[in-house]
Design a protein around this nucleic acid. Structure first.
Lengths: 246, 246
DNA sequence: CGTAACTTTGATTAGTATCAAAAATGGTGG
DNA sequence: CCACCATTTTTGATACTAATCAAAGTTACG
């Protein structure tokens, strides 16, 4: 189960270290967390709404999203996860999940027994704090998503999402903020921004016409960061200590 | 500064105990947190966007909201707080705030030096976990707010908000879920749901005409819980271990 | 009692959803 | 490597929800 060579959890550790001080012992303990590496193909579910899980998941590669489905069939994507992100750390402590996690691309992730996380944070106060900070940042990002879908017009919502994905991919060492692989279909962009796929398509075309984005298959270029950031009212503070290091 | 008689932090402790096991020593330690009780009048600010604070706040009475202001002047309320809620516990660990906290009514709150919270969680792993759970629940609520403004029509958004406020006031021992004081103006309901005050007014009138709500000054009655819950697609699971105990 | 804040009403417009279908793309098996 | 099928993107026409603008009532409050 555990596998230390190569240390799979390194991306997660890096992210933790970007905002928290960890001792060498803490780092070792995190890397030594027992886990199972799992590969899933695009579209498959990591967790399903309402299920109970005793595992925490950490993204190793690819992209997943968290989404909730409404009685009328609508579906809202509430978060996107990429390399280094921990998902459902709360399974270490909580209850049943009120959302699903689905693979947006082929993904690899590490599944950690929730109990192992629980005992680690019991042992180490600094790891516990670091995990807490992870959650605090998640909350902060979630607040900004609420703002995005609640207060911005379609054009800004989409621009904002594109900026966030750029910054986060850059922070994760996956790409440059102004040129990256967009892991979402237009339908999914709609689910994340509270718009229909048709309208997303029209907005993307208009952004392209203005030269704010250049689309090429599944990748986007953002020729002028300032321009797209302004269109999206994007201010990266809410991503917090997610330092950009490329 | 500290004041143990009467123990002001009891509502907060109760909320923590509703989801986490705490030893007698932990309970004492929480109640003994040094703090200053502060009264603010409606409209005044507890924290301001961008400021840095070295204090955590706990609601003792009244209502506050968290909101973010956009460059175009729009404002999105992203959370509402009431008795027992801890706000900005993250100040124990983090950085600058990317939102403001404003009193919706006259409020009393306890201000705790962030450093005191930090040292408490360093000492007690179980308190640290309980604080973490608080944050996890906040995130869960925030996800549901994202869904609310992102995926629901106006009528459902408002109904959902009314249900949440009812359940939470009931859980906090402030009122019954089906009859409580609504601490928001229609403008503020609009800011929380991503609608204009004018439209909120019209939707409230239509909900009243259907008999789903009965308005009387600042209080609401919800004659049929099932009906309003259905209108709002309200499923309380996202509030998690917030047990209802009246 | 007077004023500011809040709620309500009416008329019009703008933004986005909806519906339907065609075009393009991507992956798969023969 | 091509043909085929499913998925995704694109286009067009229309409907509708909610925003906007403006102003009149109403309520709360000092």
């Amino acid at each position: 189960m555990a596998s230390l060579n190569p240390p799979r959890l390194t991306p997660f550790l890096q992210k933790m270290k970007s905002h928290s001080e960890l001792s060498a012992a803490d780092e070792q303990a995190i890397l030594a967390l027992p886990h199972e590496a799992v590969s899933l193909s695009s579209g498959s579910y990591v967790f399903r709404e309402g299920a109970r899980s005793d595992q925490c998941a950490i993204m190793l590669s690819g992209f997943t999203c968290k989404h909730k489905t409404l009685p009328d069939g609508k579906r809202q994507i509430v978060a996107i996860h990429m390399r280094g992100d921990g998902m459902d750390l709360q399974n270490a402590l909580l209850v049943s999940m009120d959302y699903s996690v689905q693979a947006l691309t082929d993904v690899e992730l590490a599944l950690i027994p929730a109990q192992a996380v629980d005992s680690l944070i019991t042992q180490s106060a600094s790891v516990a704090k670091a995990m807490w900070v992870e959650t605090l940042i998640d909350t902060s990002v979630q607040r900004e998503w609420t703002v995005n879908v609640g207060s911005r017009i379609a054009r800004s919502r989409i621009a904002h999402l594109l900026c966030e994905l750029g910054i986060r991919q850059e922070a994760a060492g996956l790409a440059r903020r102004d040129k990256y692989v967009l892991p979402l279909t237009q339908e999914q962009i709609g689910d994340a921004t509270g718009l229909t796929a048709v309208h997303v398509n029209r907005v993307l075309q208009s952004l392209a016409a203005e030269g704010l984005i250049v689309r090429n298959r599944r990748s986007v270029k953002l020729p002028s960061w300032d321009a797209i950031a302004q269109a999206g009212q994007f201010a990266p503070d809410y991503l917090h200590p997610m330092r950009v290091s490329v």
